[in-house]
Write a protein that binds this DNA or RNA. Sequence first.
DNA 1: CGTGTCACCTGACAGC
DNA 2: TGCTGTCAGGTGACAC
Length: 275
Amino acid sequence: MPELPEVETIRRILRERIVGETIQGVDLSLPRLIRTPSEIEEFRQILTGLTFQDVTRRGKYLLFHLSPFLLISHLRMEGKYSLHPMDDPVEKHTHLIFRLTSGKELRYQDVRQFGTFDLIPEGEIERIPGLARLGIEPLTPAFTLDAFKELLMLPSKRSIKAFLLDQKKVAGLGNIYADEALFHAGIDPERPIRDLTAEEIEKLYTSIEDVIQKGIQAGGATVRTYRNSDGEMGYFQLQISVYGREGKPCPSCGSPIVKKVVAGRGTHYCPGCQK
DNA sequence: CGTGTCACCTGACAGC
DNA sequence: TGCTGTCAGGTGACAC
């Protein structure tokens, strides 16, 4: 479910609400979610008594700073967080609850149970390859046009769609934002990266920044991630041009949006606008 | 290094 | 109503 803008939205809300909170206890009903440490009891014991110092993000990973430990959370397809008073009824698909000393509870729900948690000492990020090997972080000074060009300067037949989904190149793009960025850049998802012109690469670079920026401004594309007793927050509909719009008219030229499998993923594009 | 396929799960939806 | 098949915003393991 969540791509960079959604995770960033969750991060901002959680940071606001849980920094300074101390974990009083941990209820875990689906041990499978915990990858590290391998002993579930260890996971519980370490966390109990630790205080949230900060919540940060890298790519699609959420990082809970619980000095001297780091709790790394990946939401995969459907992971969600919500904050509740402890006497709120526990909703379906809640697998992990952090009981906080204030009486509130941070709850993790995940219908498909794909999410992962890694609890490691700070500074041992190398133990989590998916996180350690992430590529450039968009919207940071490191994500320059030159750096992006550099990544694409390979004589590779790899499709640009596969490239954009590769977290080791640019971190945080998923299927929606990849399709949207390619649409705004006017590039066919199947184009081999070696064939892209300097002009197209520049267009794509700008489009990536744009869609991510707008996604964050919209509070995440489609997330229903965060709820509290006030009702729902973080649910806004981003302006989507192609994703999930198969057969509907292209907002630019009106021809029907086509869906096909590229790089193993459902891919939406406008044959009229994307060459 | 690359690609495609499968697996991990549940639920929504289309078609019969 | 209820069955079956397909699909889903992610990633990692695997064979080739």
